[in-house]
Amino acid sequence: MIFPLTPTLLSSFSPLALSSSSLPMLKINNIEVIYSDVILVLRGISLSVEQGQVVSLLGANGAGKSTTLKAISGLLLREDGAVTRGNIEFDGQRLDRMAPEEVTRLGIVQVLEGRRLFQHLTTEENLLTGALIRSDRAGIKQSLEQVYEYFPALPALRNKTAGYLSGGEQQMVAIGRALMAKPRLMLLDEPSLGLAPLLVRDIFDIIHRINKESGVSIMVVEQNANVALRAADYAYVMENGRIVLDGTAAQLADNADIKEFYLGLTAVGERKSYRNVKHYKRRKRWLG
């Protein structure tokens, strides 16, 4: 009997396809996530992140962005959530059902929403916890110096208790801690949350730099479409647990709906005042 050679089978056998850079490192295939066995939060999400890419996940509150990240990092399990359909693959390895600490050890590190430092540890101790999964002493030291180079404000704070740092400083430590793990993919959950606009800009500039210099892939969840699109290569827009739009950052920044609803620009490109828009019109959604 002859097995039919499907295109997917073919490509997985071809060495050319394996070495190709367009092979996604992270692939989410049509996942459905349910919390506490009853609350359906994600209704079939598919997305992929390629090696060295920055991917943004945009959307309003409650769209399911953070849940998507938690499904990847495994933290979903801690909140009584489960992937009930579809699967998540990282370099061909299934991630759904894997404990969060094991996902981290594979090289996927999440920077949790709201920074979540170890409050009573010092700045440097917080950074070092990021490297607990590594055992190369020299490499860890080198990473620490690299983090201090990315965030020049941190060396002066190295012995300060992390809980007393400012919001911006805490975000830097949180990103630095993730970098200490030498991740292959970094998941950032709303790094702009509660930060002054200028600081948000700085943080995204550094995210961009980290991506370009160390080649780590980054997936960032944001409500602030403006900064997120500037730093990203590719973006997905989520609403009500579904992906409603996706494209390269340039395509999305050009999209009329995105302009109107996320960037606050009219079709001509000028800023418009929301005072002139009728309330019901503002509530437009892609899905009814």
Partner: peptide
């Protein structure tokens, strides 16, 4: 250090890869 981190916050400890 792992123990002190775990004492502070289990979820974050897991997310940095502490078993």
């Amino acid at each position: 250090l792992s123990m002190r981190a775990t004492a502070e916050d289990h979820e974050t400890a897991q997310s940095v890869g502490i078993r």
